[in-house]
Computed example of a mutant assay.
Amino acid sequence: MKIIKLFYQFCSSKYLTFMLFFWGCIQNVFAAPDPSKIPDFKIPGVDTNTKDPTEILLIVGKSIVTLAAIFIAASAILVVAKALISIYSEATSENGKKGWVHFIVALIIGFIVIFFCLWLVKLAVSLF
């Protein structure tokens, strides 16, 4: 009896997910869209009929630079957050040697670093 109850609970918890998935599949099968209404995928700044490999390499290079800027900004934000947390816990501990001045200075420098990294991401995105 316990196995039947557990099976019923499992099926009832997954019923909504399964039915939404099933309904979406059925809709996609029977809804034959007009191919002329589907927009073409276009990369900004690139002609759709281009076969120039240098232009394609330029776009890939810009994409790599943008991804690198995003990863550097994310890692800088993570490092700043970890440093601020450690300095805050040091400032609030009873045996801590660092005071609130260290925390405020680290906060100001951290915000400068974060805004500089986000500005670099903005510049990288504006390459496109």
Rank of each mutant, 00 (worst) to 15 (best):
M1E: 12
K2F: 15
I3C: 06
L6N: 11
F10C: 04
F10H: 09
C11S: 15
S12I: 00
S13E: 07
S13M: 11
S13G: 05
Y15G: 02
L16I: 11
F18M: 08
F21W: 15
F21E: 13
F22I: 06
G24I: 01
G24E: 07
G24W: 07
I26N: 13
I26S: 15
N28H: 00
A32G: 05
P33C: 01
D34Y: 05
D34P: 02
D34I: 08
I38M: 07
P39A: 06
D40P: 06
D40T: 10
I43R: 14
I43T: 15
G45Q: 10
V46I: 14
D47W: 06
T48A: 14
T48H: 09
N49W: 10
T50K: 07
K51Q: 11
K51T: 14
D52C: 03
D52V: 06
P53E: 12
P53Q: 12
T54Q: 11
T54G: 04
T54H: 06
E55H: 05
E55D: 07
L57H: 04
L58P: 00
I59R: 07
I59W: 05
S63I: 12
I64D: 03
I64W: 02
I64R: 01
V65R: 12
V65C: 04
V65W: 11
V65K: 11
V65P: 01
V65L: 11
T66V: 03
L67D: 09
L67Q: 07
L67V: 13
I70R: 02
F71R: 02
F71L: 13
I72L: 14
I72C: 09
I72D: 09
I72G: 04
A73H: 05
A74E: 11
L78R: 13
V80K: 05
V80W: 07
A81N: 09
K82F: 08
L84C: 03
I85N: 11
I85H: 11
I85V: 07
S86V: 08
I87Q: 01
S89N: 10
T92Q: 01
S93H: 12
N95D: 12
G96H: 03
G96M: 04
K98N: 04
W100R: 09
H102I: 10
A106T: 12
L107S: 14
L107N: 11
I109G: 01
G110T: 03
I112C: 05
F115P: 01
F115K: 07
L118S: 04
L120W: 05
V121L: 04
V121S: 02
L123W: 04
L123T: 00
L123G: 09
A124G: 08
V125T: 10
S126L: 10
S126I: 08
L127Q: 03
L127V: 00
F128C: 06
